[in-house]
C-alpha cells in the first residue's frame, strides 16, 4: 500500500491518492492535510479552506463515499481510500442533480462554501437513503422506520456546513429537490440508483 521511503523516523512519504478515479503519486510532508494536498499540490482548488479546524464544512469531500472534512484528514492517512471532490461529482458535462439544483435555485451567494455544501448534500441524501436517523428524528428506533427527509431533517443534517452569506433557505430547497430527483429515479428505474449515487 504505502511506500515508505525511510525506515527510521521520517517526516515525509511518497503516497498515492485516488482522487475522482484518478491516481496521483506525490511526496508529502506528513503534516500536509488532504485539503492542502488537494489545493496546494494537485491544483484541485474546488475544495475550500474556510477554517482549517473542522468548524465550517467548506472542505467537505467524499471519502469512500462518505462526507468528511479534508482539513482534519492528513493526506498520508487518505492513501488507499476513494476520494471524491467537487471536481469529480458531475458526470462529464452533465451536472450532478445536487449541482443542478444549487444552480437553478440559487443555493449560494459568494460560492465559497458551495462545493462543501454540495458534497455534504450528496452524503446527506445517501445517508438518508440508507435509513440513518438524525438529531431531530423523533424516534430513532429501527422499528419507527426511516424519517421523511423534511426541511427540518435537511437543516439538521446540513448543519455542518456554514454559509455566512445566509443562502440557507435556497440550499435547503436545492437539497430537497435533488433528493426528490434521486427518489424518483430510484422508483422509476431501480437499477438507476447507482447512476445517481
Amino acid at each position: 500500500m504505502r511506500k515508505k521511503q525511510l525506515m527510521a523516523l521520517s517526516t515525509s512519504s511518497v503516497i498515492t491518492l485516488k482522487i475522482n478515479g484518478e491516481k496521483h503519486t506525490l511526496p508529502v510532508d506528513h503534516r500536509t492535510t488532504l485539503l492542502d494536498a488537494l489545493r496546494e499540490r494537485l491544483d484541485l482548488t474546488g475544495t475550500k479552506k474556510g477554517c482549517d479546524q473542522g468548524q465550517c464544512g467548506a472542505c467537505t469531500v467524499l471519502l469512500d463515499g462518505r462526507r468528511s472534512v479534508a482539513c482534519l484528514q492528513l493526506a498520508v492517512t487518505a492513501e488507499g481510500r476513494e476520494i471524491t471532490t467537487i471536481e469529480g461529482v458531475a458526470d462529464g458535462e452533465r451536472l450532478h442533480p445536487v449541482q443542478q439544483a444549487f444552480l437553478e435555485l440559487d443555493g449560494y451567494q459568494c460560492g465559497y462554501c458551495t462545493p462543501g455544501q454540495i458534497c455534504a448534500a450528496i452524503g446527506v441524501i445517501e445517508e438518508h437513503a440508507a435509513g440513518w436517523p438524525s438529531a431531530v428524528t423523533e424516534d430513532v428506533r429501527p422499528e419507527a422506520g426511516p424519517p421523511d427527509l423534511t426541511a427540518e431533517e435537511i437543516r439538521e443534517r446540513m448543519s455542518g456546513n456554514l454559509c455566512r452569506c445566509g443562502a440557507y433557505v435556497s440550499i435547503v430547497e436545492a437539497v430537497a429537490r435533488a433528493a426528490q430527483t434521486r427518489q424518483d429515479a430510484a422508483t422509476a428505474l431501480p437499477d438507476a440508483e447507482e447512476a445517481v449515487a
Binding site: T45, G46, K48, E87, A90, L95, Q100, D106, G111, P115
Partner: peptide, 21 residues
C-alpha cells in the same frame, strides 16, 4: 436569472484568491 458564474461555482472551477497557481 441564474448566476453567470453559477456553473463555475457548483463545479469548483471558480478560483478564489488563494487558488491561482
Amino acid at each position: 436569472h441564474t448566476r453567470i458564474e453559477g456553473r463555475d461555482k457548483v463545479t469548483g472551477a471558480a478560483r478564489y484568491a488563494a487558488e491561482v497557481p
